[in-house]
């Protein structure tokens, strides 16, 4: 378990480390969830380029692999721009039985560093 740092251990100059927000699970905000139908997807990448949260996962060749639920906030833009209807939007309440982090790629939770000693 990590611990919020004492003042002696704070980095100088107000700094934080690059890309550290990748441990922040913004997926927790979601009230609706995009569901990708891989069978329909043509990997046109319109969703990838318009996603405000960089949550469309692709493989090396630029093929859409899925949607990163750790970060996806459920804005619905991906479904709106999809030309083939490969992404549908469902309420998060449909997924209440899921346990654990909704995305699961990143172990650190929001606030893990806050207030624990």
């Amino acid at each position: 378990m990590s611990c919020a740092p004492c003042w002696q251990d704070i980095l100088p100059g107000t700094i934080t480390l690059g890309a550290s927000s990748r441990s922040v699970e913004t997926g927790l905000w979601r009230s609706v969830r995009p569901i990708l139908d891989a069978g329909k997807c043509v990997s046109c990448l319109r969703c990838w380029v318009q996603c405000p949260d960089s949550s469309i996962q692709t493989c090396d060749g630029g093929t859409v692999q899925g949607i990163d639920m750790f970060f996806c906030k459920g804005c619905g833009i991906c479904a709106a721009v999809c030309p083939v209807g490969a992404i549908s939007i469902r309420p998060e309440s449909d997924f209440l039985e899921e346990t654990g982090p909704s995305g699961g790629v990143n172990p650190v939770k929001v606030g893990e560093l806050v207030g624990q000693c």
Partner: peptide, 8 residues
């Protein structure tokens, strides 16, 4: 190569 952010 060692990016940091100032002024959080």
């Amino acid at each position: 190569d060692n990016p940091v952010s100032y002024g959080s």
